[in-house]
Design a protein around this nucleic acid. Structure first.
Lengths: 330, 330
DNA sequence: ACCTCCCCGGAAAGCGGTTGCCCAGTCTTG
DNA sequence: CAAGACTGGGCAACCGCTTTCCGGGGAGGT
């Protein structure tokens, strides 16, 4: 392991000079010494020890991102947006995946605190359990107390900078669009009852439907993933239009209908939420609410890095995208 | 920022004792002192500074993963597998995305070396440019010279532990299966010419076709992504069966045919490679070569962590999965 | 010719932990 | 009961780098 000292010795200069040459400094170093140091470093294959730099400088150039599941394209897109933004700032990214375990999320915040990362981004839905949220919040406070910055994508209930997708409004807008096509009997594949994102989307949808004076949608709960959508789709009764609270579930629902010989959109219309890029070529093309996921990720990083006294909440609107998975029944 | 010293002072013990209580050690500490330290740490909200620990211990508990693109489900699955394995070992993961820029890949290796990560996993196809590969290799050697471990998913040309999907054999097996269905006129959406993974899959396919005495497939190059597949599909001539060297391209090709009114599989059969989970509900269901991506990711981590004198190369076979996107023309 | 100021090099004090070593007290054990 | 074996606590020397402060020497001013 070659250290700065080795380089300095080989170059015949002091540690200070070598440090100034190799790792940036306001101070100038004479051209000849500078060249000597650079040559020595190159010959020896020197790489600065970042742990030492972090310790000495008291600040690291790493940020942390905590997501539920990288194989879920929703989080992948979010993470990618944040990582591009981070790369633009010269920051490295440390990623944690919780696989939807809130305890893991708390543990990751603690770990990233220990890493003294510059900022932590929490992506993914909060759960409604106040006890868990409280513990997470305490852990975040502890981190912020020592100078850490935090931003969150999802619900605004941690008292930190947040990029909040308009889940409720998106659900409502979608409901109005679908009703506009003449649908009256709706069902919602609502995901887990405690997951805020799922709940808000569902609630917005249901509220809008009722506001239009239409019959209350049947709400079917289940897991938030493809298989959850598949299973829940079996219980949509006589609804002519089904809203799955995310695209991945919607795709599961489509598969379920296909397997059972139910035609989409002829027999039943299906809509999702998120507009996942990987799923855009699905047949039938999925009606959905588009969220600018990559932008949301990079925006979250911006928020975290900006000084911000009082927490900013960025509401981002979704855009209803009507595609062939829904039928105009007027 | 609360330090160990603060905790020690508050607990009225020495630094050494506090360290032994809080950050594990072979040495025992008396029950009363232990309790005092723990209480103090909790009251103060102490979190060990990992940079300091890394420096003092001379080893970090972080591993690095370098992928091309997280939003590509292939890499997401690989990364997820590796991350699960890492979590099982109590390791944290630092992720770098190169967006297919080989220079970025080299830069990330340098950075992760600086971070003194325990191991680096390089996922994603190597390119055939020997100059770039040489520089990457030198950077890796530099890292390994200082005790770093490296494993790679893809081609075995860096002289490190490698998980090598049998791209050539997979392509060949697929060709034989398709020929077995009676197809004779093939085309290959071959991706970029310099990308090893794409090249191997294509080469295996072409070789098997020729070995069967069938006419040489038409090979169309283009980008390795969805749009590349879409564009290339326009140039498949009179082929009755088209092999896209990955699933994402295949989906692009399907979209292209759909847009042009070419029916799949009636007019043309389409096959991909990888068996991406997110795409399994695609219609028509994609014939492909299944790769156990998550396993490959975790296996790569294992290889990297194992002591291994001479580099191990793990060949992983793909499995042809016939689905509706190909037609039996016998 | 002298003084000041600036520029650049080096010595050394941290940054926040870990751990080898010494030491006092308590336990065995012959 | 003396002597060796443990136990558990603390001191202090690092780990590799940054940065403050000090000093020497050359340039510029008078």
């Amino acid at each position: 392991m070659v250290t700065l000292e080795d380089v300095a010795r080989q170059a015949g200069v002091s540690l200070a000079t070598a440090s100034r040459v190799l790792n940036g400094s306001t101070r100038q170093v004479g051209a000849d010494l500078r060249a000597r140091v650079e040559r020595a470093a190159d010959e020896l294959g020197y790489r600065a020890n970042m742990a030492a730099q972090t310790l000495a400088r008291g600040a690291s150039n790493v940020i942390g991102i905590v997501v539920h599941d990288l194989t879920d394209p929703y989080f992948a897109a979010l993470a990618d947006g944040a990582m591009r933004a981070a790369a633009g700032e010269g920051l490295l990214v440390m990623v944690g995946t919780t696989h939807r375990d809130p305890e893991q999320e708390i543990a990751y915040v603690a770990t990233m605190n220990a890493q003294r990362v510059r900022a932590v981004l929490l992506a993914g839905s909060r759960v409604s359990d106040p006890e868990v949220t409280g513990r997470l919040r305490r852990e975040l406070d502890r981190y912020r107390a020592s100078g850490g910055r935090v931003a969150c994508v999802g619900q605004d209930l941690l008292g930190v900078d947040t990029v909040a997708p308009a889940n409720y409004e998106g659900g409502a807008a979608l409901a109005r669009s679908l009703a506009g096509l003449g649908h009256t009997r709706f069902a919602v594949l609502a995901g887990p009852p405690h997951l805020m994102t799922a709940r808000d989307r569902c609630a917005g949808f249901v509220a809008a439907v009722e506001e239009l004076g239409l019959p209350e949608p049947r709400v079917v709960h289940g897991p938030f993933d493809r298989d959850g959508g598949y299973a829940a789709a079996a219980e949509t009764g006589d609804a002519t239009c089904v809203f799955a609270v995310n695209d991945v579930m919607a795709v599961g629902a489509l598969a379920s209908y296909r397997d059972r010989g139910v035609r989409v959109p002829d027999d039943v219309s299906v809509a999702g939420f998120d507009d996942i890029a990987t799923l855009r070529d699905h047949v039938p093309a999925l009606t959905t609410v588009r969220l600018p996921l990559a932008d949301m990720g990079s925006r979250a990083l911006e928020l975290a890095l900006a000084a911000g006294e009082t927490p900013t909440v960025d509401h981002v609107q979704g855009e209803v995208v009507l595609r062939e998975s829904v039928r105009d029944v007027r």
